[in-house]
Amino acid sequence: MDDLTKRLLQRLIRRMPAQMLKTTLEKWDRLTAAQQQSLDFTQPKWALIETLLTIFEENEFTVKHITELEMLHVINNPNQGMWHAFHLMDPDDTAITVELTQFKEQFKSHLRELVRHVSIKIKKHTDEAVWIRIAWGDGFSKPNHLKPTYVVHHLQTPYVFVTSLTSKQKPLLSQALTLSTRHQGIKDANLSGRKLTAIRDLLMKQYQQVFTTRYPSPLEETNQPVSNPRIEREQAGLLANRLQMACEAFGYGVLPQLQSAVYKLETKYKDDTNKTMTEREEPFRCVVKFASSNLLESIRQCASSGIASTPVTPLLSSIPIKGRNYFVIKDNGLGPS
């Protein structure tokens, strides 16, 4: 094994907790039972790496094997790194007929036409998702396996999820994807997050949906004894009303875990008490970023607790409705991106 291969293995092992490494190696199923048993996962990481390096040399494993192990690890732990969603546009009539083998062949050949040195691995996961690992090189250098791009695509859907893609690689990947899925183009879906499952659920609407009704549903009556019935009733009414409005915007169930939403605002500054600013022609430019461990949940809470006025502003309810978390707002409404 050369130095680069060793480094690749070391890096991969280092980022896996011991227990995860154990299960991943078992799933991978390329070590003999004896080798598997010789590994002591309670050892410190560096010692474990030494043992694994010896085993890998014994078995004459190469970069190919290590990337295979890495892919298995990434597929089983998809909620790491920053994932960006893309949207394929204008499908050809034959787009619906693209099946896995064909897609694999087409994608590889299109990308290889664009990039001389590139290493591509494609694997279908049980949930129908196609996982692609790309190690990029260029005219002169070999593929860099230390910084691979991961792409997840569900065949017959317009959605593509990508992590670790540079702006240089983006047009190359876009072209290979549109050609191999038989679409005319691809655009940024303005949605990104640390949890692949969450952004996929949001975009593919795989969570409990909200069906807005024109008329609010009747509120359930409560039969609690109250001290001052009139005030209590009014407060209970307000609370229930807020709750209902919050849930009408975001649903009642568990929401996909988004970490952030960004709004680029270029709107007029309006304030009756500030004539100078209100009369100014230029828009007031600012960027607002909302962040939380579960953003949609936090906003729903803000609305139901009264911190955010109800009904929830379309700017915020657009996140689940439009399935995006990056917006450019100008005075004529929601901009294209």
Binding site: T276, F290, L295, S298, Q301
Partner: peptide
């Protein structure tokens, strides 16, 4: 707070608002 908000204002616009007050 459970919800963190970062509010970044264009320096020129912030300066104009400041001057106006």
């Amino acid at each position: 707070p459970p919800l963190q908000i970062t509010y970044t204002i264009n320096p020129e616009d912030a300066w104009e608002l400041w001057s106006s007050v």
